[in-house]
């Protein structure tokens, strides 16, 4: 994987995604072929255990890269921080 070395990625979890994960944040090193948010979700879900629980229905989990909302197709290259959370319910 010299062409695409794994790079550490900070991931944050909020609300019930955080509760299912059992932690608020962690650092992961996805393989180089994980290019988009959807790829990252699929890779995390495949880890099983709490990841399988938190990402059981990936279509209802929202994402932000560097504190900006993104779609599943967003590339993760260069991201410093990726957050996963349920649809927001403030106001």
């Amino acid at each position: 994987m010299t062409a695409h070395p794994a790079s550490p990625l900070r991931i944050l979890y909020f609300a019930w995604v955080r509760e299912k994960m059992g932690r608020a944040e962690e650092t992961v090193e996805p393989p180089g072929d994980v290019a988009t948010v959807a790829d990252l979700v699929a890779w995390l879900k495949a880890q099983g255990g709490e990841y399988g629980e938190a990402f059981a229905r990936p279509e209802i989990v929202r994402a932000a890269i560097d504190q900006t909302h993104v779609k599943p197709s967003a590339p993760i290259a260069g991201a410093r921080e990726i957050a996963f959370f349920p649809p927001v319910t403030g106001g």
Partner: peptide, 24 residues
């Protein structure tokens, strides 16, 4: 816009000790 985009999440507690995250 705030209700659809600002990253807040509400969790309710009920008198019997149960509770849950509010659905969008």
């Amino acid at each position: 816009y705030l209700k659809s985009r600002a990253p807040f999440w509400k969790k309710e507690s009920r008198p019997d000790g149960s509770g849950g995250w509010v659905d969008a």
